[in-house]
Design a protein around this nucleic acid. Sequence first.
RNA 1: GCCGCGUUCGUCUAGCCUGGCCUAGGACACUGCUCUUUCAAGGCAGCGACACGGGUUCAAAUCCCGUACGCGGUACCA
Length: 492
Amino acid sequence: MVRVRFAPSPTGKLHIGGLRTALYNFLYARHHDGDFILRIEDTDQTRKKEGAVQDIIDALHWAGLDFDEGPGKEGDVGPYYQSERKDLYKKYVDQLIEQDHAYYAFDTSEEIDQMRERLKKSGNPSPKYDSITRQSMKNSLTMPQDEVERKLENGDEYVVRLKVPRRETIRFEDEVRGYVSFESKGLDDQVLLKSDGMPTYHLANVVDDHLMNISHVIRGEEWLSSTPKHMLLYEYLGWEPPVMAHLPLIMSPSGGKLSKRKAEQEGIPINTVDYRELDYEPEALINFLAMLGWSPGDDREILSLDELTEEFSLERINKSGAVFNYKKLNWYNEQYMKEKSPEALLDRVREDAAEFGFDEVSDDYLLQIIPLMQERATRVPEIIEEGRFFFEEPEEYDEQAIKKWKDDSDELVKRFLEKVEQISETEFEAANIKQAVKEITDEKGVGFGKVAMPLRVAVTGQGYGPDLFPTIEVLGKETALDRIRRALQELG
RNA sequence: GCCGCGUUCGUCUAGCCUGGCCUAGGACACUGCUCUUUCAAGGCAGCGACACGGGUUCAAAUCCCGUACGCGGUACCA
């Protein structure tokens, strides 16, 4: 049974890198008919942010990545908040201590700082609390047992550290990178239990993955270096480690991990909710993110969540970091927008319209506008932003548009008015309006644009825009002709 | 610094495991053409890459070694 988990810490909004990690976990689970679990890694009480968990849940739901077990959706192995599992870890910590794989340490943070200072001065560039250093620190390995017991009874503050062996090669297989090995002498005696009684990530994630029957750990590459510590823990606890797969990082266009700071500098929205607020299509974001570090192996670019699920495999994940390409995301969004039915976009467009104060617009009217605009917009809000003339008379004409009103435009537009006035309200349709223009171009021997361009300017105030004749039809005879008469006055 | 991981067009990638089919394919972006009532979209074309150096081999983007560069880690953060 495949069981994977997405285990974010609730320190803020779910960022785009986290979403991709969640996506890969989701795809792997679904591909294998397995379970996708959400676990909240809130062992650092100081970094916890109000509302973060809800944001994560909402973001996953918006993206279509609903989990099978997690907060608010209890399975058999909960709770799904590590802070609520605090008591569970104690047992394993005791076991490790008893088996001499962990020990109590009473050093204050000042003392540890001093140790680091001292070692640095003597030429050690990266001082560690390790098999050598621990011999000169205050811990249950160096102190007489009765003193250790006294301290514990007194309630003195302590942490529990992993007793990393002095010389040992730790080798494990990563599904993405193949065999990876580390020398234990490069590791430090990682704190497992903090002085506030909370486990560190390293302990909690190993214990929870085991207790929750996680079969595959799919997480970011930033965890690769701490995996050997986790492997040691599995070994000491006598557990079979899950399959490991470390994902390449999402990089900023300027290089380096795409951090919040960098993203902001480069104008890239970093949180999932930002994309939701910008009104991107979640399918587009998902498709784009899936392709950042993975590919189906052929030339397909557009894949639905179902298709991604069908095709997904860990073997096809890339090893190197992928730069976030905002323009490509926009291209994806355009592709998905074009495919949507106008009805599917209606609710969102209506909201956008209301924001501009166009709140008494009928669905029927909106449904006429959407098809005209959706194929040329990058995001849904542009339908209204770029199509304001559908709701209000253009206040002024674009500078660029005015240039398209030429010397002979007056005459041609007047002729158009004469012809179109003859058309009845019910016959005021795109084809008939276009026919009128056609007749004028024939009779005056001018190009189509000669007539159409001034009309566009008159009706929309813009020199660009959707197909002109349906636009005029949608506006209706009265409105369209009023605008044309006004343009004749102002531009003529 | 040390440890680990990585390196194919500007970017995302296919190809690498199982050397020859690679004159290295696709997508985004960019440029031009085309279509067209405009701007887009679409169609067509162009630009553009195997980091470098050694091996191994009849043959290397593909296998091996080294160098350079990039990234990650180096906390009582995850």
